[in-house]
């Protein structure tokens, strides 16, 4: 019972959310960047690392690209990359 409740709370708080699943104007904190080498380094050079606060600004048609804001920087990501970033809503 308790487990179910905890699980429900986790779901509601969106613990296991992906960046690509956020809606326009939603804000979240990065929990994990599930990428290796090159991509990880690239994201890090923009400040996209664990603990960073991100906000969805805009999406292109069918969400193929997403515009986000990290520390006053506007970034464009493709959906595939956004799926690799795990976030929690705040």
């Amino acid at each position: 019972m308790i487990i179910i409740i905890i699980f429900k709370i986790m779901l509601e708080n969106g613990v296991c959310l992906k960046l690509s699943e956020l809606k326009k104007h939603q804000e979240a904190r990065v929990v994990r960047v599930d990428a290796e080498g090159e991509l990880k380094q690239r994201l890090a050079s923009f400040g996209l690392i664990r603990g960073a606060i991100v906000k969805i600004i805009d999406c292109s048609i069918r969400k193929s690209t997403i515009e986000i804001m990290v520390d006053n920087t506007l970034l464009a990501l493709r959906k595939q990359e956004a799926e690799k970033i795990e976030v929690e809503k705040i």
Binding site: E38, L39, R42, L43, F46, T65, E67, T73, L74, L75, A76, L77, R78, Q80, E81
Partner: peptide, 11 residues
């Protein structure tokens, strides 16, 4: 493989 798409949108 494709190149990841991560780019800054300048002001």
């Amino acid at each position: 493989e494709d190149e990841p798409f991560v780019m800054e949108m300048p002001k």
